[in-house]
Design a protein around this nucleic acid. Structure first.
Lengths: 178, 178
DNA sequence: ACGGACATGTAACGAGTTACATGATTAT
DNA sequence: ATAATCATGTAACTCGTTACATGTCCGT
């Protein structure tokens, strides 16, 4: 049920197509949500059918037509209502931690490899969040103030990655000792 | 695909029924995985059908029969193989952060309420992880050493909650100022 | 009498993934 | 030529949630 509100939130900030949306998910909310383009299109169709979105087809020179979606009044009302509801609890699903939990099946070297691989991924994530954060800092201060809570969600993503990285480095040190 | 290995991991440590498993998920891996009892039963049936689990029915005095599952050799082999594979990337889905991202629809007071509600939940989680951690520390040192990597996953859960709580407290301070 | 713990399940649905499909433009 | 980017979609499947169903024992 949350994907639809993520879609409404981004389209509320700025209208766009399914394709745009997919990229914006990757660039601006990847620290707390992800979705495939198939999910986007399915959700856009539904939201449109339910009257929460308007759609205008824009022919483009040399490119396929673009279906630009924007919120209807009903869409804005639905979003404004939802943000006030208690949020459904998030479900944690971290396959890597299952592997570590079953780590007695791994040699010291194998455990080291597994953790290192994850560590690299999290360093890359931190890097991309920091770049996003810089882009935000260089944007219009009026927008920054309007969307300061959105900025705080990114700050949490950054802190979470730092915590993760520090933890993984600790594990590697222990695996390298004795 | 990961639930099945979470199930295999716990049954590898100690055999048990679907009902047992559900509670063990809540008590010992809730910091990185959760599943409903329906998922457990469905997965147990499949794993049994595929020959990765043995099942022995144990009649109990005054209680329903219990189907106790344990790993077959094929099950242990499948688990040992999987733990060495690169872990599938985790998907982050945090509905609460969508709400904050759309936080310009909230009054200062509403934002404060929303964050406070989440903060309480995370404090409760931290509390339960700390209790788990104490139980681990009071257990057999030989087991602690055998499963030290499992212990580290709990340490990460604790650090992650602390990061989260510090962040939320910061937001609340900002909402209370000016 | 009622709720909670114990114990296992079915059915229906919604969410998410994977594979496939189409077709134009731009850059190498 | 070949790959990448732009742009939208269908079909089939698995995973996860919600609701429903059954029945015993124990404590209050």
């Amino acid at each position: 049920m949350s994907l639809r509100y993520a879609v409404l939130t981004l389209l509320d900030i700025e209208p766009g197509s399914g394709y745009d949306l997919k990229r914006r998910f990757e660039r601006s909310v990847s620290h707390f949500w992800s979705a495939s383009h198939q999910q986007m299109y399915r959700e856009l169709h539904r939201l449109h059918a339910e009257g929460l979105l308007d759609c205008s087809e824009q022919p483009q020179a040399g490119k396929p037509d673009k279906k630009v979606y924007s919120l209807t009044d009903a869409g804005r009302a639905a979003l404004a209502d939802w943000v006030q509801q208690p949020a459904p609890a998030q479900k944690i699903r971290e396959p890597f931690l299952i592997q570590l939990f079953a780590g007695h099946h791994l040699s010291r070297q194998q455990a080291h490899d597994t953790v290192s691989r994850q560590l690299e991924q999290h360093r890359a994530l931190l890097q991309s969040y920091l770049e996003q954060s810089e882009r935000v800092e260089q944007s219009d201060p009026a927008l920054q103030e309007r969307y300061w809570l959105a900025g705080e969600t990114l700050a949490l993503g950054i802190e979470a990655e730092r915590t993760w990285i520090a933890w993984a480095e600790g594990i590697l040190r222990k695996l390298e000792q004795d």
